[in-house]
Design a protein around this nucleic acid. Sequence first.
DNA 1: GCTCAGCTTACACGAACCTGACAGGGCGGG
DNA 2: CCCGCCCTGTCAGGTTCGTGTAAGCTGAGC
Lengths: 224, 224
Amino acid sequence: MRLLIVEDNAELSRLVAAGLAAAGYESDIVGSAAEAREAVSSVSYAAMILDLGLPDGDGLSVLRELRRQMEPLPVLVLTARGGLQDRVSGLRSGADDYLAKPFAMEELVARLEAILRRPGQLLGRSLRLANLVYDTESRQIFVDDQPRIISARETSVLEILLRRQGRVVPKKNVEDHIFGLEGEVASNAVEVYVSRLRKQLAEHGAKVVIHTIRGVGYLMAEEK
Amino acid sequence: MRLLIVEDNAELSRLVAAGLAAAGYESDIVGSAAEAREAVSSVSYAAMILDLGLPDGDGLSVLRELRRQMEPLPVLVLTARGGLQDRVSGLRSGADDYLAKPFAMEELVARLEAILRRPGQLLGRSLRLANLVYDTESRQIFVDDQPRIISARETSVLEILLRRQGRVVPKKNVEDHIFGLEGEVASNAVEVYVSRLRKQLAEHGAKVVIHTIRGVGYLMAEEK
DNA sequence: GCTCAGCTTACACGAACCTGACAGGGCGGG
DNA sequence: CCCGCCCTGTCAGGTTCGTGTAAGCTGAGC
């Protein structure tokens, strides 16, 4: 299985490649966004490990281009610090997972294998679960291919739950995703939007459920 | 996953505990070297965060004792004085990493997770037994790759039994792992949670069994 | 068959959560 | 420019569910 490492720090990229080799993966290394674009277009990689701090431009733009082209390549993003802003914009742009430096090789391999294992769920420009489809670009939702309209906030909640379908999303993450950095809210807003979203999804006949994990957060899954 | 914070400044320790809670770790707080010794000997912690400036003696001596007993507990040392001398003596005494005040919560968490992941069987990100998988980071369980929801307490029991699968876990250890130092429980709580956990696992189709070893504790193994 | 550890069910309490209602505000249509 | 509609965030009341305790039952071991 061949991977692409996009990282301008030569030492780090060699280290990562060595670690991946030990885990049984071959990998190619490029050091800039331009090379990354070229590599991706000419070789079929199993996944990409993408550093956001590139010399010749934003790694995120590489990612966005991929997604715009409906390229389902799994992408694991590396970033210098796990800031909320980076996380949010990274996930918005279509990253499958995130890893903040410094990290342990074991974790990189673990996360990489996690995204390799789940084929295409979180990827691409449209997310899907049962008969529910969400187009990340137009922020539209469809049930049985019929367009349905829900409000902006509800869409935000749906998006983050859908991106991590089958996994628990802590309530705090939902809150961050909805409100970004615009000052914290002082109420049960998340609960309210989850409630409204559930109602909407039910009315529209979406065959999905949002489970509550008490004291933790929510989990979205296919119904029954 | 349960951590021990050894720190005499109450405000700081609360802050750290809150930050760790946000990152998904439970923690107990003690304020002196004596309490630290006691806590470590009675509870099985995943790691210790140790302040060197303690009222009743040097934190380093606690660390040295641990290491003399070949205790593999990962230790992250905090100190006000970021001098080289401290750093050296700290690492010499067996600290796994070192953080000078003032520090950012993000960095503490990152370093903590780095040392948690280092070696050893206890530290993997996901534990597996038969068709049962437990993700230590999100505290989620999966049966046949399907997410299953169980309560926080049941998860705690599952975690310690899974970490020591195939070995007998004394009931006292389970109790300590669930309740930490938050005042002992005066009932058969452990039995109740084991019972509930067994029921849940059966309902969810997990092919594992929890054997009872009378007068000692429990043992988790693959079914049949 | 007796004893005691462990199992299971029941219950009470409180925290976490849900949801209907409402007021403020933005935006588009008239 | 004004009106009305819907989105938004907050609150309050009601509800659910996890938790810890207790009590009665089961079964292992002597």
